[in-house]
Amino acid sequence: METLKVIKIGGQIINDPKKLSSFLENFATLKGPKILVHGGGKLATSLAKQMNITVTMKEGRRVTDAKTLDIITMAYAGKINKNIVATLQANYCNAIGFSGADGNTIVSKKRPVKEIDYGFVGDIKKVHTETLNLLIHLNIVPVFCAITHDTQGQLLNTNADTIASELAIAFSDNFQVELYYCFEKSGVLKSIQDETSVIKTITTKDYKTYIDQGIITDGMIPKLDNCFYAIKNKVRQIYIGMPDMIFDTTIPHTSIQK
Rank of each mutant, 00 (worst) to 15 (best):
Leu88Val: 06
Gln237Tyr: 13
Asp218Gly: 00
Ala48Val: 08
Gln257His: 15
Phe144Pro: 04
Gly11Thr: 11
Val177Asp: 14
Lys205Phe: 14
Val85Lys: 06
Lys126Thr: 12
Arg62Tyr: 07
Arg61Val: 03
Ile80Thr: 07
Tyr210Lys: 04
Pro112Trp: 01
Tyr229Thr: 15
Thr148Ser: 10
Gln152Pro: 11
His128Arg: 14
Val143Lys: 04
Ile53Val: 06
Ile238Tyr: 07
Ile72Lys: 06
Lys232Ile: 14
Leu30Asp: 09
Val177Ile: 05
Ala86Glu: 13
Ala146Lys: 05
Gly11Trp: 10
Thr68Glu: 12
Asn91Met: 05
Ile140Thr: 08
Asn26Ala: 11
Asp102Ile: 12
Ala75Phe: 01
Gly39Ala: 09
Val6Lys: 05
Gln89Val: 14
Gln213Ile: 03
Ser191Thr: 08
Glu59Thr: 06
Ile136Asn: 01
Pro222Leu: 09
Thr209Leu: 15
Val113Met: 08
Asp102Glu: 07
Ile9Met: 03
Phe171Pro: 09
Leu47Ala: 09
Ile147Leu: 01
Val85His: 03
Asp65Tyr: 07
Gly60Phe: 02
Asp102Val: 12
Gln257Glu: 15
Thr162Met: 14
Tyr181Gln: 02
Asn174Phe: 10
Phe228Leu: 09
Tyr239Glu: 02
Gly103Leu: 10
Asn83His: 02
Ile147Arg: 04
Ala230Pro: 01
Lys109Phe: 14
Ala146Thr: 07
Leu132Ser: 03
Lys42Ala: 11
Gln213Asn: 06
Pro222Ser: 03
Thr201Lys: 11
Thr29Gly: 07
Asn15Ser: 05
Tyr181Gly: 04
Gly241Phe: 04
Glu166Ile: 00
Lys190Gly: 14
Leu36Asn: 05
Gly39Arg: 05
Leu179Thr: 02
Leu155Gln: 02
Thr217Ala: 14
Ala170Glu: 12
Asn104Ser: 06
Val143Pro: 05
Ile13Ser: 04
Ser172Ala: 11
Glu195Cys: 12
Tyr92Ile: 13
Ile72Cys: 09
His128Lys: 14
Ile84Ser: 05
Lys31Ile: 15
Asp244Phe: 14
Ile14Tyr: 00
Gly122Phe: 13
Leu20Tyr: 01
Ile14Pro: 01
Tyr180Arg: 00
Cys145Asp: 04
Thr204Tyr: 14
Thr64Gln: 08
Asp244Trp: 12
Lys126Asn: 11
Lys82Asp: 13
Ile124His: 03
Lys18Glu: 10
Thr162Phe: 12
Ala77Ser: 02
Asn91Ser: 10
Gln237Glu: 15
